[in-house]
């Protein structure tokens, strides 16, 4: 089999995205290599969430180019993009209230071998096993976030798009999420993480993209993070 060039697991060129009449993204360019962990930083409304949604084809209209492992997806319907091996965890977590915890876990389609089994997931998230017959939205915020993460690890997809997974969670759970992200990276997952600030992923991320008004304003590699703190704080308005 022809292995795609690893530096191009995800490659976005000149991406424009629209919701009805509003033009949100104005030419995003970014690449994520296999096994990399990259964050998308920026203020609210800068276009970070829209970038993830555009990758999944969940915006009204998009143009430019998005390739997954070298395959052009700009004209593909969402379900076919997902089948290329992408796990998507939306900002609002998207736990289905009409489904039990286990049904939520089993919902995403397994697209290839190599995903985690239900038993492995329950070992990793024992809370979910205890509550597997409960309806999804009966869980606490932290448990819901765990569930939203766990269910995309079953599919065999290697590219994870995670949107603000620490938002509104207690510090102890945020730490647990941090450890989880670390484990996933070690397992070889490629991760695109949308975050409000860079502290959560500072130790884990290989690179940080800063998005401002729908374009990439800056890219900061891990080893320049310490020297770029002031600049980043300015971008993020902290």
């Amino acid at each position: 089999m022809l292995e795609p060039r690893p530096e191009e697991m995800l490659k976005i060129t000149g991406l424009h995205a629209f919701y009805e009449e509003s033009h949100i993204l104005h030419g995003i360019d970014l690449t994520v290599g296999a096994g990399e962990l990259v964050t998308l930083l920026g203020r609210n409304g800068a276009g970070r969430t829209t970038t993830l949604k555009s990758i999944m084809g969940l915006v009204g209209r998009r143009s430019g180019s998005i390739t997954i492992n070298g395959i052009e997806t700009i004209a593909m319907p969402t379900h076919r993009i997902a089948r290329l091996g992408i796990g998507y965890c939306p900002e609002e977590r998207g736990i289905f209230s009409n489904l039990t915890v286990e049904e939520n876990l089993l919902l995403p389609l397994v697209v290839r071998e190599g995903g985690m089994s239900l038993a492995e997931l329950y070992e990793m998230f024992p809370n979910l096993q205890e509550r597997r017959k409960s309806m999804g939205t009966r869980l606490s915020g932290g448990e819901q976030q765990m569930l939203a993460m766990a269910r995309i690890l079953r599919t065999g997809g290697k590219l994870l798009l995670l949107d603000e997974i620490t938002e509104g969670l207690a510090p102890v759970i945020v730490q647990a999420m941090g450890r989880l992200i670390g484990q996933l990276k070690e397992r070889g997952f490629t991760i695109v993480l949308v975050e409000q600030n860079f502290h959560f992923a500072a130790d884990l991320a290989d690179r940080h993209y800063v998005i401002e008004s729908g374009v990439i304003a800056d890219m900061i590699p891990r080893d320049e993070l310490a020297s770029s703190t002031d600049k980043l704080n300015q971008y993020l308005g902290v």
Binding site: M56, T78, H79, G94, S97, E103, L106, L107, L109
Partner: peptide, 19 residues
């Protein structure tokens, strides 16, 4: 479960690979 999920949030169900 696909149907119930689709009733609730069809966009996300698409993003999980379901037609």
């Amino acid at each position: 479960s696909y149907l119930r999920a689709g009733t609730e949030n069809p966009e996300l169900v698409k993003a999980f690979g379901i037609n």
